[in-house]
Write a protein that binds this DNA or RNA. Structure first.
Length: 577
DNA sequence: GCCGTTTTCGGCCCGACTGTTTTCAGTCG
């Protein structure tokens, strides 16, 4: 089972326990385990094989036995035991906002409801409002939520949510009485997909600010509106939560609303260890508040350095900060050249000349012209003859742009058997080759891993592109032993691509972190097919930052000369061996 | 269900909002 599958399973166990009315803390032990496994870099199968499951924080005797069985056999006896008498569909009710375990149990016990459709029918028939603790308003709300549940999936790409968030932030900054405002939540942490937008504001007249927020242009529905907190749906259907605090609480509130949840729990534990209390209003010792004008000062009270929002996932950043050993994360301005650009020779929309002009306009010193190879037929992949034509055109353009270095490159297809789509003779003629899987996604883990490693082992492959093939919210990554592939890349001195297209962001940042620890090198690429794709570099950068990368880890932070040196040096090394 | 150099039992992060209640439970983040 993959980490994600194990995490999902354990979440279901927790939900079942809650529905059964077991201690919430028991359920939380499973939720904590689910979050830990879902967000850690190590392969859970490896952890179990190595007998290290019990070393994970929050894993005692019970979890170690039960999760061990789950990972080894894909099955958990305990799950069968607690799910007895509870229909599987009941858990789907929890996907409807404002329906939690207590309500779900109530609906099932009193009305035998075990699916969202049945819930909808009961609400329309007015049956829900007759239940204890329910009323007309609750029933209407549930109906509205079910409509939304059917209409659109809850999450969106970061690239879609961020512009909306920035527009809302501007509007909030314009509300009368607002002193400071910023984005918070997962969008500030630059998570790859976003559930809702969190905005924080400081003001003396919180209630009025929330009122004004509910009336902003673009608001299609007001979900809630109180003295310090409001929630509204903005076109095109993204929910935004605004929190208003007094300015003296701004730093603590910004930290709190940025999260992540796990990071906050850990920080609050640190406060508790010192007999302090940390909440969204400040850091306190008894009644006394430690003043913090910004987050940096807040961290300083703990003897910590300020932690970049992208790192706040509770994966060691708090320990590193306490030891003053945080990395200096890569920034956009560190990038010197662009990697993985398509032209209209394959499926790009720009000519090579237009690409060169675009790259120069944006101030970069070099790029790799990486069109598809012939096996990717739908993308007009190049055969030998057309590749030769492309090279001729490239040389013409190169002459017109003396200040720019254009690397002869290819995104060569990794065929089903792991062989490459160009002959060795052709492969040797490129300056920089990027290999990628584009077909036969449904192989077994072993077969796919072998396929990719065979390609990596080829002496003239320099970079592995979009290593897991995922399309966020659309297509799952293909089944791959990522850790083995990373190790193979390190062994063969092949760089891993962080494909910066916001629908890919592949390699995933959780693996980026792992790969960095294993000694891998990276490129942050655009995988650009059209002019708009050149605006997507920040998403590749934030993925790298979430993986703790520094400029020194990323090859296209090198000058054109040094980038070329890396390519030729490793090729010489390979032809010798 | 987990955890502990003050604890092996009694805690477990903390607070806002809503709706249905006469003081609070449920949900969410």
């Amino acid at each position: 089972m993959t980490n994600a599958e194990v995490a999902e399973f354990l979440t279901r166990v927790g939900q079942l326990l809650e529905i059964r009315g077991e201690s919430f803390f028991k359920a939380r032990a499973y939720y904590n385990a689910a979050r830990l496994i879902g967000s850690m870099g190590e392969d859970i199968n490896r952890v179990v094989e190595d007998g290290k499951l019990g070393d994970l924080p929050g894993f005692g005797e019970a979890l170690t036995t039960k999760v061990g069985q789950l990972v080894k056999t894909g099955h958990m006896d305990y799950f069968d035991q607690i799910s007895k008498g509870i229909p599987a569909g009941l858990l789907t009710l929890l996907d409807v906002p404002e329906v939690g375990p207590k309500k779900a149990k109530l609906f099932y016990d009193k009305l035998k409801i075990s699916s969202v459709d049945e819930l909808e029918a009961a609400a329309r028939a007015g049956k829900l409002s007759k239940l204890a603790g329910m009323g007309k308003k609750s029933e209407e709300k549930i109906l509205t939520h079910i409509e939304q549940y059917h209409k659109h999936k809850a999450r969106r790409l970061l690239s879609e949510a961020l512009p909306v968030a920035e527009r809302i932030l501007q509007l909030v900054q314009g509300i009368k009485g607002v002193k400071r405002a910023s984005l918070a939540g997962s969008i500030r942490r630059r998570l790859e997909t976003i559930g809702d937008i969190d905005v924080l504001a400081s003001a003396t007249n919180g209630g009025e600010v929330i009122d004004a927020f509910a009336k902003l242009p673009g608001v299609t529905e007001v979900v809630s509106s109180g003295a310090t907190k409001g929630s509204a749906v903005f076109a095109p259907g993204i929910q935004c939560d605004l929190r208003a605090v007094e300015d003296k609480s701004y730093a603590a509130a910004q930290h709190y609303f940025t999260g992540s949840k796990d990071h906050n729990v850990h920080m609050r534990q640190l406060a508790k260890d010192r007999d302090w209390k940390l909440n969204e209003y400040g850091l306190f010792q008894g009644e006394k508040m430690f003043p913090s004008k910004d987050e940096e000062e807040l961290f300083k009270h703990f003897g910590m350095d300020w932690i970049e929002p992208e790192m706040r996932e509770n994966t060691g950043e708090i320990e590193a900060s306490l030891k003053h050993k945080l990395p200096r994360l890569i920034m956009e301005k560190d990038i010197k050249g662009l990697v993985h650009i398509h032209s209209n020779f394959s499926d790009g929309s720009l000519s090579i000349e237009q690409v060169a002009a675009e790259v120069e306009k944006r101030g970069y010193k070099y790029f790799t012209l990486s069109d598809h190879s012939k096996a990717v037929y739908v993308a007009h992949g190049l055969d030998d003859e057309r590749q030769n034509q492309q090279w001729k055109e490239l040389e013409k353009v190169q002459k017109k742009h003396p200040g720019l270095t254009i690397f002869k490159s290819t995104e060569v297809d990794i065929k089903k058997d792991g062989s490459l789509d160009f002959s060795d003779r052709m492969m040797e003629l490129f300056d920089c080759t990027i290999a990628a899987v584009h077909s036969s996604f449904t192989m077994s883990t072993d077969a796919m891993t072998e396929r990719v490693i065979k390609a990596i082992s080829h002496p003239f492959v320099d970079i592995l592109a979009h290593p897991t093939g995922r399309l966020l919210l659309e297509r799952e990554p293909f089944s791959l032993d990522v850790e083995k592939v990373i190790n193979a890349c390190v062994a063969h001195d092949v760089a891993l691509e962080i494909d910066g297209h916001p629908a890919r962001l592949d390699l995933d940042w959780r693996y980026v972190r792992k790969a960095k620890d294993l000694g891998a090198k990276f490129v942050i690429s655009l995988d650009a097919h059209s002019p708009i794709d050149f605006d997507y570099l920040p998403f590749g950068i934030s993925t790298a930052r979430k993986g703790w990368l520094e400029a020194g880890d990323v090859l296209n932070c090198l000058s054109a000369e040094k980038f070329e040196k890396w390519l030729s040096h490793r090729r010489k090394k390979k032809s010798r061996s």
